[in-house]
Design a protein around this nucleic acid. Structure first.
Length: 447
RNA sequence: GUGGGUAUAGCUCAGUUGGUUAGAGCGUCGGAUUGUGGUUCCGAAGGCCGUGGGUUCGAGACCCAUUACCCACCCCA
Protein backbone atom coordinates (compact mmCIF):
# COMPACT_ATOMS: atom_id res chain seq x y z
CA UNK A 1 0.00 0.00 0.00
CA UNK A 2 1.44 3.35 -0.96
CA UNK A 3 1.88 5.80 1.88
CA UNK A 4 0.67 9.34 1.91
CA UNK A 5 3.63 11.64 1.52
CA UNK A 6 3.94 13.73 4.70
CA UNK A 7 4.11 17.43 4.12
CA UNK A 8 3.69 20.70 5.95
CA UNK A 9 1.64 23.47 4.39
CA UNK A 10 3.38 26.35 2.68
CA UNK A 11 3.83 29.33 4.96
CA UNK A 12 3.75 27.25 8.12
CA UNK A 13 6.97 27.01 10.07
CA UNK A 14 7.90 23.77 11.78
CA UNK A 15 11.15 23.38 13.68
CA UNK A 16 13.44 20.54 14.61
CA UNK A 17 13.93 19.97 18.36
CA UNK A 18 17.11 21.99 18.88
CA UNK A 19 15.71 24.96 16.97
CA UNK A 20 12.41 24.73 18.80
CA UNK A 21 14.29 24.95 22.09
CA UNK A 22 15.99 28.12 20.86
CA UNK A 23 12.68 29.58 19.78
CA UNK A 24 11.14 28.80 23.15
CA UNK A 25 14.07 30.43 24.88
CA UNK A 26 13.35 33.62 22.96
CA UNK A 27 9.69 33.49 23.95
CA UNK A 28 10.72 33.03 27.56
CA UNK A 29 12.91 36.14 27.42
CA UNK A 30 10.07 38.14 25.90
CA UNK A 31 7.75 37.07 28.72
CA UNK A 32 10.31 38.08 31.33
CA UNK A 33 10.98 41.38 29.64
CA UNK A 34 7.31 42.28 29.25
CA UNK A 35 6.57 41.22 32.82
CA UNK A 36 9.36 43.44 34.05
CA UNK A 37 7.42 46.47 32.83
CA UNK A 38 4.28 45.46 34.64
CA UNK A 39 2.30 43.88 31.84
CA UNK A 40 -0.13 41.11 32.62
CA UNK A 41 -0.29 37.99 30.44
CA UNK A 42 -3.39 37.39 28.35
CA UNK A 43 -4.56 34.52 26.19
CA UNK A 44 -7.56 34.67 23.90
CA UNK A 45 -9.09 32.06 21.58
CA UNK A 46 -7.47 31.32 18.25
CA UNK A 47 -10.94 31.10 16.76
CA UNK A 48 -13.53 33.84 17.07
CA UNK A 49 -16.92 34.49 15.56
CA UNK A 50 -16.38 35.94 12.10
CA UNK A 51 -18.66 38.88 12.84
CA UNK A 52 -16.41 39.86 15.75
CA UNK A 53 -13.16 39.70 13.81
CA UNK A 54 -14.64 41.31 10.72
CA UNK A 55 -16.59 44.01 12.56
CA UNK A 56 -14.53 46.65 10.83
CA UNK A 57 -15.16 45.17 7.42
CA UNK A 58 -13.58 45.64 4.05
CA UNK A 59 -9.94 45.84 3.10
CA UNK A 60 -7.14 43.32 3.18
CA UNK A 61 -8.36 41.64 6.32
CA UNK A 62 -11.45 40.27 4.64
CA UNK A 63 -9.36 38.91 1.78
CA UNK A 64 -6.73 37.30 3.96
CA UNK A 65 -8.70 35.88 6.83
CA UNK A 66 -9.11 32.12 7.24
CA UNK A 67 -12.86 31.71 7.43
CA UNK A 68 -14.97 28.56 7.66
CA UNK A 69 -18.18 27.20 9.03
CA UNK A 70 -18.74 24.48 11.59
CA UNK A 71 -22.35 23.51 11.46
CA UNK A 72 -24.25 26.79 11.30
CA UNK A 73 -21.52 28.89 12.94
CA UNK A 74 -19.43 31.33 10.90
CA UNK A 75 -15.91 31.19 12.33
CA UNK A 76 -12.54 32.77 11.62
CA UNK A 77 -8.97 32.39 12.77
CA UNK A 78 -7.58 35.55 14.36
CA UNK A 79 -5.27 37.47 12.01
CA UNK A 80 -3.69 39.61 14.72
CA UNK A 81 -3.85 40.01 18.50
CA UNK A 82 -5.21 43.54 18.51
CA UNK A 83 -8.76 42.86 17.40
CA UNK A 84 -9.17 40.05 19.97
CA UNK A 85 -7.80 42.49 22.56
CA UNK A 86 -10.40 45.07 21.56
CA UNK A 87 -13.14 42.49 21.97
CA UNK A 88 -11.72 41.36 25.31
CA UNK A 89 -11.49 44.87 26.70
CA UNK A 90 -14.98 45.80 25.55
CA UNK A 91 -16.38 42.55 26.96
CA UNK A 92 -14.63 42.80 30.32
CA UNK A 93 -14.60 46.57 30.64
CA UNK A 94 -16.32 46.48 34.03
CA UNK A 95 -13.80 44.08 35.55
CA UNK A 96 -10.60 45.56 34.20
CA UNK A 97 -8.47 48.21 35.83
CA UNK A 98 -7.22 50.98 33.58
CA UNK A 99 -4.74 51.77 32.21
CA UNK A 100 -4.85 48.12 31.23
CA UNK A 101 -1.41 46.79 30.39
CA UNK A 102 -1.32 43.36 28.83
CA UNK A 103 1.06 41.25 26.79
CA UNK A 104 0.11 38.38 24.57
CA UNK A 105 2.29 35.96 22.64
CA UNK A 106 0.46 33.72 20.24
CA UNK A 107 -0.08 32.46 16.74
CA UNK A 108 -2.07 34.40 14.18
CA UNK A 109 -3.20 33.42 10.67
CA UNK A 110 -3.24 35.21 7.35
CA UNK A 111 -4.24 33.45 4.17
CA UNK A 112 -1.93 35.38 1.90
CA UNK A 113 0.64 33.95 -0.43
CA UNK A 114 3.70 32.84 1.50
CA UNK A 115 7.11 34.10 0.53
CA UNK A 116 10.52 34.58 2.03
CA UNK A 117 10.09 35.54 5.69
CA UNK A 118 6.37 35.77 5.08
CA UNK A 119 4.21 33.22 6.83
CA UNK A 120 0.57 32.21 6.92
CA UNK A 121 0.83 31.10 10.50
CA UNK A 122 3.15 33.12 12.68
CA UNK A 123 3.74 34.25 16.22
CA UNK A 124 3.13 37.78 17.32
CA UNK A 125 4.36 39.08 20.65
CA UNK A 126 2.26 42.10 21.52
CA UNK A 127 2.16 44.63 24.30
CA UNK A 128 -0.53 47.25 24.59
CA UNK A 129 -1.58 49.87 27.11
CA UNK A 130 -5.26 50.79 26.99
CA UNK A 131 -6.58 53.88 28.71
CA UNK A 132 -10.14 54.59 29.79
CA UNK A 133 -11.10 57.81 28.05
CA UNK A 134 -7.56 59.16 27.96
CA UNK A 135 -4.00 57.89 27.86
CA UNK A 136 -0.93 59.93 28.66
CA UNK A 137 1.66 60.48 25.96
CA UNK A 138 4.41 59.11 28.20
CA UNK A 139 3.11 55.66 27.28
CA UNK A 140 4.05 56.38 23.69
CA UNK A 141 7.66 56.77 24.79
CA UNK A 142 7.67 53.86 27.22
CA UNK A 143 6.61 51.30 24.63
CA UNK A 144 9.70 51.74 22.44
CA UNK A 145 11.88 51.72 25.53
CA UNK A 146 10.49 48.27 26.30
CA UNK A 147 11.32 47.23 22.76
CA UNK A 148 14.85 48.45 23.26
CA UNK A 149 15.19 46.46 26.50
CA UNK A 150 13.63 43.39 24.97
CA UNK A 151 15.81 43.24 21.88
CA UNK A 152 18.86 43.93 24.02
CA UNK A 153 17.88 41.07 26.33
CA UNK A 154 17.63 38.80 23.30
CA UNK A 155 21.18 39.74 22.35
CA UNK A 156 20.42 41.93 19.36
CA UNK A 157 22.63 45.01 19.13
CA UNK A 158 22.36 46.28 15.56
CA UNK A 159 18.81 47.57 15.53
CA UNK A 160 17.17 50.93 15.35
CA UNK A 161 13.71 52.05 16.42
CA UNK A 162 12.22 54.57 14.04
CA UNK A 163 9.62 56.92 15.40
CA UNK A 164 7.14 59.12 13.63
CA UNK A 165 3.74 60.67 14.25
CA UNK A 166 0.74 60.25 11.99
CA UNK A 167 -0.45 63.75 12.83
CA UNK A 168 2.75 65.11 11.32
CA UNK A 169 2.19 63.25 8.08
CA UNK A 170 -1.51 64.01 7.91
CA UNK A 171 -0.81 67.67 8.69
CA UNK A 172 1.75 67.86 5.90
CA UNK A 173 -0.68 66.19 3.50
CA UNK A 174 -3.41 68.62 4.58
CA UNK A 175 -1.17 71.49 3.58
CA UNK A 176 -0.87 69.92 0.14
CA UNK A 177 -4.60 69.43 -0.13
CA UNK A 178 -4.28 65.66 0.06
CA UNK A 179 -6.55 65.07 3.03
CA UNK A 180 -8.85 62.72 1.12
CA UNK A 181 -6.10 60.47 -0.19
CA UNK A 182 -3.94 60.63 2.91
CA UNK A 183 -3.95 56.84 3.42
CA UNK A 184 -2.73 56.16 -0.13
CA UNK A 185 -0.22 58.97 -0.04
CA UNK A 186 1.07 57.64 3.26
CA UNK A 187 1.65 54.21 1.79
CA UNK A 188 3.56 55.75 -1.08
CA UNK A 189 5.73 57.82 1.24
CA UNK A 190 6.31 54.75 3.42
CA UNK A 191 7.94 53.07 0.44
CA UNK A 192 10.45 55.88 -0.02
CA UNK A 193 13.37 53.81 1.19
CA UNK A 194 12.44 50.92 -1.07
CA UNK A 195 11.50 52.64 -4.32
CA UNK A 196 13.51 55.86 -4.05
CA UNK A 197 12.81 59.57 -4.14
CA UNK A 198 12.19 59.79 -7.88
CA UNK A 199 9.47 57.14 -7.86
CA UNK A 200 7.72 58.78 -4.93
CA UNK A 201 7.69 62.17 -6.61
CA UNK A 202 6.48 60.51 -9.80
CA UNK A 203 3.55 58.93 -7.95
CA UNK A 204 2.72 62.09 -6.02
CA UNK A 205 2.62 64.26 -9.11
CA UNK A 206 1.13 61.62 -11.43
CA UNK A 207 -1.46 59.87 -9.27
CA UNK A 208 -2.27 62.49 -6.68
CA UNK A 209 -1.90 65.68 -8.70
CA UNK A 210 0.65 67.32 -6.46
CA UNK A 211 2.65 70.05 -8.15
CA UNK A 212 6.27 69.09 -8.84
CA UNK A 213 7.61 71.90 -6.67
CA UNK A 214 5.35 70.95 -3.74
CA UNK A 215 6.33 67.30 -4.07
CA UNK A 216 9.96 68.29 -4.13
CA UNK A 217 9.76 70.41 -1.01
CA UNK A 218 7.74 67.71 0.77
CA UNK A 219 10.47 65.19 0.02
CA UNK A 220 13.11 67.66 1.21
CA UNK A 221 11.32 67.88 4.53
CA UNK A 222 10.80 64.13 4.80
CA UNK A 223 14.44 63.42 4.06
CA UNK A 224 15.88 66.22 6.17
CA UNK A 225 18.84 65.23 8.32
CA UNK A 226 17.16 66.89 11.32
CA UNK A 227 13.44 66.35 10.69
CA UNK A 228 12.18 68.11 13.80
CA UNK A 229 13.95 71.34 12.92
CA UNK A 230 12.70 71.01 9.34
CA UNK A 231 9.17 70.48 10.61
CA UNK A 232 9.29 73.47 12.95
CA UNK A 233 9.57 75.65 9.88
CA UNK A 234 5.95 74.68 9.12
CA UNK A 235 4.62 75.64 12.54
CA UNK A 236 1.54 77.80 12.64
CA UNK A 237 0.13 76.68 9.30
CA UNK A 238 -1.81 73.61 10.35
CA UNK A 239 -3.24 72.69 13.72
CA UNK A 240 -2.83 68.95 13.23
CA UNK A 241 0.75 69.33 12.11
CA UNK A 242 1.57 71.53 15.11
CA UNK A 243 0.07 68.96 17.47
CA UNK A 244 2.07 66.20 15.77
CA UNK A 245 5.33 68.09 16.06
CA UNK A 246 4.71 68.75 19.74
CA UNK A 247 3.89 65.08 20.40
CA UNK A 248 6.87 63.84 18.46
CA UNK A 249 9.19 66.18 20.33
CA UNK A 250 7.76 65.07 23.68
CA UNK A 251 8.08 61.37 22.80
CA UNK A 252 11.71 61.84 21.79
CA UNK A 253 12.50 63.65 25.06
CA UNK A 254 10.83 60.95 27.12
CA UNK A 255 12.54 58.18 25.21
CA UNK A 256 15.87 59.67 26.16
CA UNK A 257 14.72 59.81 29.77
CA UNK A 258 13.69 56.15 29.54
CA UNK A 259 17.28 55.38 28.68
CA UNK A 260 17.00 54.45 25.04
CA UNK A 261 20.47 55.24 23.63
CA UNK A 262 20.49 57.84 20.88
CA UNK A 263 22.05 55.42 18.40
CA UNK A 264 19.15 53.00 18.82
CA UNK A 265 16.33 55.29 17.81
CA UNK A 266 15.72 57.92 15.24
CA UNK A 267 12.95 60.23 14.14
CA UNK A 268 12.06 59.21 10.62
CA UNK A 269 9.06 61.04 9.26
CA UNK A 270 8.88 58.81 6.20
CA UNK A 271 7.65 55.78 8.11
CA UNK A 272 3.90 55.48 8.20
CA UNK A 273 2.91 51.85 8.79
CA UNK A 274 0.08 50.68 6.67
CA UNK A 275 -2.51 50.06 9.33
CA UNK A 276 -5.05 52.81 9.15
CA UNK A 277 -6.10 52.80 12.80
CA UNK A 278 -2.94 54.50 14.01
CA UNK A 279 -3.59 58.12 14.88
CA UNK A 280 -0.45 59.40 16.60
CA UNK A 281 3.00 58.03 17.28
CA UNK A 282 4.05 55.13 15.07
CA UNK A 283 7.11 52.91 15.32
CA UNK A 284 8.99 50.37 13.37
CA UNK A 285 12.22 48.59 14.19
CA UNK A 286 14.79 47.49 11.66
CA UNK A 287 17.99 45.50 11.88
CA UNK A 288 20.61 47.97 10.73
CA UNK A 289 22.87 45.30 9.28
CA UNK A 290 19.94 43.80 7.36
CA UNK A 291 17.68 46.64 6.19
CA UNK A 292 16.32 44.45 3.40
CA UNK A 293 14.38 42.44 5.95
CA UNK A 294 12.10 45.30 6.82
CA UNK A 295 10.41 45.90 10.11
CA UNK A 296 10.67 43.19 12.76
CA UNK A 297 8.52 45.11 15.21
CA UNK A 298 6.00 47.82 14.67
CA UNK A 299 3.08 49.57 16.24
CA UNK A 300 1.71 52.86 17.36
CA UNK A 301 -0.94 54.93 19.02
CA UNK A 302 -4.63 54.47 18.25
CA UNK A 303 -7.39 56.67 19.60
CA UNK A 304 -10.19 54.20 19.80
CA UNK A 305 -9.42 50.51 20.21
CA UNK A 306 -12.89 49.06 20.58
CA UNK A 307 -15.16 51.42 18.67
CA UNK A 308 -16.92 48.50 16.94
CA UNK A 309 -17.87 46.89 20.24
CA UNK A 310 -18.52 49.71 22.70
CA UNK A 311 -19.30 53.40 23.03
CA UNK A 312 -16.51 53.76 25.54
CA UNK A 313 -13.54 55.74 24.29
CA UNK A 314 -10.51 53.48 24.73
CA UNK A 315 -7.29 54.98 23.41
CA UNK A 316 -4.21 52.82 23.41
CA UNK A 317 -0.69 52.31 22.26
CA UNK A 318 0.98 49.06 21.43
CA UNK A 319 3.54 47.22 19.45
CA UNK A 320 3.93 43.81 17.93
CA UNK A 321 7.04 41.74 17.34
CA UNK A 322 6.80 39.35 14.41
CA UNK A 323 8.50 36.51 16.22
CA UNK A 324 8.34 33.93 13.47
CA UNK A 325 9.83 36.28 10.93
CA UNK A 326 12.47 37.44 13.39
CA UNK A 327 13.45 33.86 14.12
CA UNK A 328 13.50 32.96 10.43
CA UNK A 329 15.78 35.91 9.70
CA UNK A 330 18.10 35.11 12.58
CA UNK A 331 18.45 31.52 11.43
CA UNK A 332 18.96 32.61 7.85
CA UNK A 333 21.67 35.08 8.86
CA UNK A 334 23.27 32.49 11.16
CA UNK A 335 22.72 34.83 14.07
CA UNK A 336 21.33 32.23 16.46
CA UNK A 337 23.73 31.59 19.30
CA UNK A 338 25.05 28.05 18.80
CA UNK A 339 26.42 28.04 22.34
CA UNK A 340 22.93 28.37 23.72
CA UNK A 341 22.02 25.33 25.75
CA UNK A 342 19.33 23.56 23.78
CA UNK A 343 19.70 19.99 25.02
CA UNK A 344 16.56 18.48 26.50
CA UNK A 345 18.49 17.09 29.48
CA UNK A 346 21.61 17.71 31.54
CA UNK A 347 22.29 14.08 32.28
CA UNK A 348 21.61 10.74 30.63
CA UNK A 349 21.73 7.60 32.73
CA UNK A 350 23.00 4.53 30.89
CA UNK A 351 21.95 1.42 32.81
CA UNK A 352 23.95 -1.68 31.92
CA UNK A 353 22.07 -4.17 34.03
CA UNK A 354 18.73 -5.86 33.42
CA UNK A 355 17.37 -4.44 36.63
CA UNK A 356 16.66 -0.75 36.04
CA UNK A 357 15.78 0.00 39.68
CA UNK A 358 19.21 1.47 40.59
CA UNK A 359 19.06 3.72 37.52
CA UNK A 360 15.58 4.91 38.42
CA UNK A 361 16.65 5.63 41.99
CA UNK A 362 19.61 7.62 40.70
CA UNK A 363 17.42 9.56 38.26
CA UNK A 364 15.05 10.49 41.08
CA UNK A 365 17.97 11.78 43.15
CA UNK A 366 19.34 13.84 40.25
CA UNK A 367 15.93 15.31 39.43
CA UNK A 368 15.47 16.13 43.09
CA UNK A 369 18.65 18.19 42.84
CA UNK A 370 17.28 20.07 39.83
CA UNK A 371 19.29 18.21 37.22
CA UNK A 372 17.27 17.50 34.06
CA UNK A 373 17.66 13.76 33.69
CA UNK A 374 16.78 11.02 31.22
CA UNK A 375 17.18 7.27 31.61
CA UNK A 376 18.14 5.34 28.47
CA UNK A 377 16.47 2.06 29.35
CA UNK A 378 16.15 0.66 25.82
CA UNK A 379 17.71 -2.60 24.68
CA UNK A 380 20.43 -0.91 22.67
CA UNK A 381 24.15 -1.30 22.44
CA UNK A 382 26.16 0.81 24.82
CA UNK A 383 27.74 2.86 22.07
CA UNK A 384 24.33 3.67 20.64
CA UNK A 385 23.26 4.99 23.99
CA UNK A 386 26.33 7.22 24.18
CA UNK A 387 25.70 8.36 20.64
CA UNK A 388 22.18 9.33 21.73
CA UNK A 389 23.63 11.61 24.41
CA UNK A 390 25.98 13.07 21.86
CA UNK A 391 23.26 13.79 19.30
CA UNK A 392 21.04 15.47 21.85
CA UNK A 393 24.00 17.44 23.22
CA UNK A 394 23.39 16.07 26.70
CA UNK A 395 26.54 17.12 28.56
CA UNK A 396 26.80 14.27 31.10
CA UNK A 397 26.45 10.49 30.70
CA UNK A 398 26.10 8.44 33.86
CA UNK A 399 27.25 4.87 33.50
CA UNK A 400 25.64 2.42 35.85
CA UNK A 401 26.88 -1.18 35.51
CA UNK A 402 27.47 -4.16 37.81
CA UNK A 403 30.75 -2.72 39.08
CA UNK A 404 29.34 0.67 39.95
CA UNK A 405 26.27 -0.75 41.64
CA UNK A 406 28.38 -3.14 43.71
CA UNK A 407 30.58 -0.25 44.84
CA UNK A 408 27.59 2.05 45.47
CA UNK A 409 28.93 4.47 42.87
CA UNK A 410 28.32 5.77 39.38
CA UNK A 411 30.69 6.67 36.53
CA UNK A 412 30.19 10.24 35.37
CA UNK A 413 31.39 11.01 31.87
CA UNK A 414 31.53 14.56 30.62
CA UNK A 415 31.05 14.20 26.89
CA UNK A 416 32.69 17.42 25.75
CA UNK A 417 36.03 16.64 27.40
CA UNK A 418 35.70 12.86 27.52
CA UNK A 419 36.80 12.82 31.15
CA UNK A 420 35.26 10.22 33.40
CA UNK A 421 35.28 9.54 37.10
CA UNK A 422 33.59 6.99 39.33
CA UNK A 423 32.02 8.56 42.40
CA UNK A 424 29.13 8.28 44.86
CA UNK A 425 25.73 9.65 43.82
CA UNK A 426 25.96 12.79 46.00
CA UNK A 427 29.36 13.54 44.54
CA UNK A 428 28.03 13.05 41.03
CA UNK A 429 25.27 15.56 41.74
CA UNK A 430 27.81 18.08 43.05
CA UNK A 431 30.05 17.48 40.05
CA UNK A 432 27.28 17.96 37.52
CA UNK A 433 25.76 20.97 39.29
CA UNK A 434 29.15 22.68 39.38
CA UNK A 435 29.78 21.83 35.74
CA UNK A 436 26.41 23.18 34.61
CA UNK A 437 26.96 26.41 36.55
CA UNK A 438 30.16 26.92 34.59
CA UNK A 439 28.37 26.61 31.28
CA UNK A 440 27.69 30.02 29.86
CA UNK A 441 24.37 29.78 28.12
CA UNK A 442 24.39 33.37 26.89
CA UNK A 443 21.73 35.17 24.89
CA UNK A 444 19.81 33.58 22.03
CA UNK A 445 21.09 36.02 19.43
CA UNK A 446 24.71 36.47 18.46
CA UNK A 447 24.92 39.87 16.85
C1' G B 1 -5.31 38.68 -6.55
C1' U B 2 -0.82 39.63 -10.48
C1' G B 3 4.00 38.10 -12.68
C1' G B 4 8.25 34.72 -12.98
C1' G B 5 10.82 30.09 -11.60
C1' U B 6 11.44 25.02 -9.78
C1' A B 7 9.93 19.74 -9.08
C1' U B 8 15.56 13.58 -9.52
C1' A B 9 17.45 9.29 -2.62
C1' G B 10 15.52 11.42 4.21
C1' C B 11 18.29 16.55 2.98
C1' U B 12 21.21 19.74 -0.69
C1' C B 13 21.88 19.06 -5.63
C1' A B 14 24.52 16.82 -10.55
C1' G B 15 22.59 14.23 -14.78
C1' U B 16 26.07 16.08 -21.95
C1' U B 17 22.09 17.66 -28.99
C1' G B 18 16.79 12.37 -26.21
C1' G B 19 20.28 6.33 -26.09
C1' U B 20 21.46 0.18 -22.40
C1' U B 21 22.03 -0.67 -15.39
C1' A B 22 20.08 7.41 -12.83
C1' G B 23 24.97 9.70 -9.66
C1' A B 24 27.62 12.77 -5.64
C1' G B 25 27.95 15.04 -0.83
C1' C B 26 25.51 15.04 3.78
C1' G B 27 22.39 12.02 6.78
C1' U B 28 20.78 6.81 8.16
C1' C B 29 22.23 1.69 9.25
C1' G B 30 26.20 -2.14 9.92
C1' G B 31 31.45 -3.29 10.83
C1' A B 32 36.68 -1.96 12.52
C1' U B 33 35.69 -1.12 18.65
C1' U B 34 30.61 -7.63 22.58
C1' G B 35 31.33 -1.20 28.95
C1' U B 36 32.80 4.36 25.65
C1' G B 37 30.06 8.91 21.75
C1' G B 38 31.88 12.97 18.90
C1' U B 39 37.11 12.28 14.79
C1' U B 40 38.97 8.28 11.08
C1' C B 41 38.56 3.91 7.83
C1' C B 42 35.54 -0.06 5.35
C1' G B 43 30.72 -1.56 3.77
C1' A B 44 25.27 -1.42 3.00
C1' A B 45 20.40 0.15 2.43
C1' G B 46 17.67 3.94 0.13
C1' G B 47 14.65 6.77 -6.33
C1' C B 48 7.51 4.62 -10.70
C1' C B 49 12.98 11.15 -11.79
C1' G B 50 5.71 15.47 -8.47
C1' U B 51 1.05 13.58 -11.17
C1' G B 52 -1.68 12.70 -15.93
C1' G B 53 -1.40 12.75 -21.08
C1' G B 54 1.46 13.49 -25.76
C1' U B 55 5.85 13.31 -29.38
C1' U B 56 9.50 9.23 -30.38
C1' C B 57 12.14 2.86 -32.10
C1' G B 58 13.51 4.98 -27.28
C1' A B 59 11.84 10.38 -22.40
C1' G B 60 14.63 12.08 -15.98
C1' A B 61 15.62 15.31 -20.34
C1' C B 62 11.13 17.65 -25.52
C1' C B 63 5.51 19.42 -25.68
C1' C B 64 0.62 20.15 -23.13
C1' A B 65 -2.14 19.98 -18.76
C1' U B 66 -2.38 19.60 -13.53
C1' U B 67 -0.75 19.90 -8.48
C1' A B 68 2.73 21.42 -5.03
C1' C B 69 6.58 24.43 -3.67
C1' C B 70 9.87 28.81 -4.25
C1' C B 71 10.79 34.04 -5.61
C1' A B 72 8.78 38.91 -6.49
C1' C B 73 4.50 42.47 -6.56
C1' C B 74 0.12 43.95 -3.61
C1' C B 75 -0.26 44.15 1.60
C1' C B 76 2.06 43.33 6.01
C1' A B 77 5.03 40.93 11.50
Amino acid sequence: MSKLKPHTLSGFMELLPARQAQFDRMVEILRQSYSLYGFTPLDTPLIEASEVLLAKGGGETEKQIYRFTKGETDLSLRFDLTVPLAKYVALNYGQLTFPFRRFQIGKVYRGERAQRGRFREFYQADIDVIGDGALDISNEAEIPSIIYQTFTALGLTHFKIRVNNRKVLNGLFDLLGLREQSADVMRTVDKLEKIGREKVIETLTGEFGVSPSAADSLLDTLEAADPITALNAYRGQNELLDAGITELTTVVNYMEAFGVPADHFTVDITIARGLDYYTGTVYETVMTEHPEIGSICSGGRYDNLAEYYTDKQLPGVGISIGLTRLFFVLEDQEMLNGELLTSPADALILPMTDDLAPAITLATALRGAGIRTQIHGEQKKFKQKLSYADKLAIPYALLLGEDEIAAGKVSVKELASGTQSTVAAEEAIALITAGLARRNTGKPIRD
